[in-house]
Simulated assay, not measured.
Amino acid sequence: MKLLRHHSDLGCWEMALAPPAPSLRGLVDTYSGYDERNTRFTRRHELPGIQAVLIVNLGAPITIIDTDGHVVAVASGAGFAAGLSDAYAISDSTGSQRGFQVMFTPQGARRFFGLPMRALTNRAFDLADLLGQAAARQLIEGLQTVNSWEAGFRLLDAMLLRRMTVAPDFDLAAARETSWALRQLQQSHGRMTVASLAAELGCSRKLLATRFHEHVGLTPKSVARILRFRHALDLIDAVPANWSAIAQDAGYFDQAHFANDFRRLTGRTPGDYLADRLPDQYGLPVD
């Protein structure tokens, strides 16, 4: 487990990060537990990535405005889940919050929620609406009783393993091919073309897009855009803010292409992102 702590005029927070049990690898990317107190920021743009998310809120109420604009109020002792998004979502808090978060791979979310990933795209849902009242309550009440991050992660392992199923009508071959195509996009940071992926799989681009909607939630083109963006964020961390060089290294046509995608995915310019981002934190604070 990795533990991050921060204390400054921005506020105080602790974040614990841990991998899932080995039997959940490929289905869950990571767990996190977080405890934020008296932060100066109360609204954040939550940036898109190639994971679906489940959050159990153990602190003050929060509000989520998903990418499609739906408002989800999350009380203390409640939870929500969201699929992949092609732009940022918004979270509002009191400045203090506490909870657990699961970052699913698309394959893991497809199996855990038992829904086509297109049903979750750009949306956030109350956890009870996705899991049912009894299963959501069992998960939330279990996490409310733990006395450490490690104990919470062990409980998540057990509960997720019990629910990971494959529906009788699940097209396993299509899921495997889609997972392979997603890995190629990830390994190339979004540079591999959709035409190349379809040719490698011996299918049409239309069929590949249909499979991505089912098993990922976004088109291959949208996934590639997010992966380029995420690679650009890594480059920003690694080198000084030479935007032209970062745009080129991340695979953008030019700096204008980079700036347009960046604003769509974050709601900010690259310069604003660099000035406003938080240390050891997810999301981007906004006024």
Rank of each mutant, 00 (worst) to 15 (best):
H7A: 14
C12G: 08
A16L: 10
L17F: 10
S23R: 14
V28S: 03
T30F: 00
Y31W: 06
S32R: 11
E36G: 02
F41W: 10
T42R: 14
E46V: 05
G49P: 05
A52I: 04
L54N: 12
N57L: 03
G59L: 09
A60G: 14
H70N: 11
V74F: 02
S76G: 14
A78E: 12
A81D: 04
A82M: 09
A87K: 13
G95S: 11
F100M: 02
F104T: 00
G108R: 04
G114Y: 07
A119R: 10
R123L: 14
R123C: 15
A124M: 06
F125Y: 11
D126M: 13
L127E: 10
G132N: 04
A134T: 07
R137F: 06
W149I: 01
G152F: 03
M164Q: 09
T165H: 15
V166S: 14
P168Q: 03
F170Q: 05
A174I: 00
T178K: 02
W180L: 11
A181F: 02
A181E: 05
Q187S: 05
S188R: 06
G190R: 02
G190F: 03
T193W: 06
T193P: 06
A198T: 04
E200P: 09
E200D: 07
S204L: 07
V216E: 07
V216Q: 07
G217C: 05
V223F: 01
I236F: 12
F253L: 15
N260S: 07
T269D: 03
Y273M: 01
A275C: 07
L284W: 00
